[in-house]
Design a protein around this nucleic acid. Sequence first.
DNA 1: CCGGCGATTATACAGATGTATAAACAATTA
DNA 2: TAATTGTTTATACATCTGTATAATCGCCGG
Lengths: 221, 221
Amino acid sequence: MNEIASDELRPAPRAHQGRRAVISREDLMAAAMVLVGPNRSISTLSLREVAREAGIAPNSFYRHFRDVDELAVTLIEQAGASLRQVIGEARHRAITGRSVVRSSVEAFMEQLWSEQKYMQLLLREGTVGSDAFKAAVERQLVYFEDELGVDLVRLARANNSGIYRPDLVARSITRLVFAMGATALDLAPEKRRQAVEDLIIMVRMIVVGTQTIAEGRARID
Amino acid sequence: MNEIASDELRPAPRAHQGRRAVISREDLMAAAMVLVGPNRSISTLSLREVAREAGIAPNSFYRHFRDVDELAVTLIEQAGASLRQVIGEARHRAITGRSVVRSSVEAFMEQLWSEQKYMQLLLREGTVGSDAFKAAVERQLVYFEDELGVDLVRLARANNSGIYRPDLVARSITRLVFAMGATALDLAPEKRRQAVEDLIIMVRMIVVGTQTIAEGRARID
DNA sequence: CCGGCGATTATACAGATGTATAAACAATTA
DNA sequence: TAATTGTTTATACATCTGTATAATCGCCGG
């Protein structure tokens, strides 16, 4: 994508010629993360602002990203990858435990509190901003859905329980959890526990629903 | 709230003294709606921009709203009220029909296509922006949930079907429908029909889930 | 040690933004 | 008609933005 990003692709074709970069893409991404907050979305950050926070001249920004939007997309991908890893681990660790729903939701919410700013990118900024930005977030959500879908099928087989339209089940759960997580982000700490319990019940309803339908026991109104 | 808004409260204390306002709050709100679009969120509109679109001097804006944020909150309330009315009608009209889920979801999606810009405010801008703005959106969602919750209980009684935690059911359905609606907003027209059908299935899963749990037929994994 | 080159910077410019101040305006009241 | 009052406007200012241009810095190969 970017000629500078390809540094990591070709490790050192000719070391470095000229002055070595004193600042890295990662530094700029970190600076951007310092600036975002509950009332500051990534798309409202200015190039100068990020550069200022990183302690470099505005123009140096261009050597690393074409514009703030490209930086935002990179951050989204990083946040998505890290979240999917955490949740994936939680799900597989829980296979031997008791409730997959509970441990997955709890893992998600833990990641939510500990990485608030990263999570905010995925949860609440996916619907505004440039097309590239929206697409990047949507991509992460679909990754998430796909992995969840696979696990749902595997679990259904293991438990000898039916599952109806696992794709839609995965989609429902993902979107619901992300939506509830977004509102939970600015929730008073003492209400968080309750929010987690509520969310677990919500997810269980979906799971019970798909099982009941699959087993032909559903009464459709 | 605003001394000009109170026009409608005290009809005409002393008609008008001085020049009559040549532009109204509604004109400014309409101008703002012209400017928003799939890639333009309300919180990124500048005061000058809205004034320009409305054809007034920038400073005249202050006679009607304190800032763009106050205008945005007013728009949110208007959008929320109109949506709740449409959906409420659809739900009660459907009580005599066949599927409440189908007709409600379809009514929602119709409103989505016909009032895209208004709906966008509720669906995708609720998580960024000022606290006042986020609170306004959340308020509309809770209104929506409450009304849905009441109807769910009524329907369960009418159908002699159980319902578990109707509050959480209403919340799940609301958040899920809004989340899916937000992504559906920039969907190619030919994919919309499929999205509606998928969404109906998702909602049905939740409904079947709550019924199954209420009737003690659930197998909790 | 030095010439070259790439990363970084300083400076600058045009445009946009929020808003302060005061003048121009029109409708109502006296 | 004339004074009054609230609305609208013109002008202005400081600040911020993205970016173009050219100079500076420091490492690396010769």
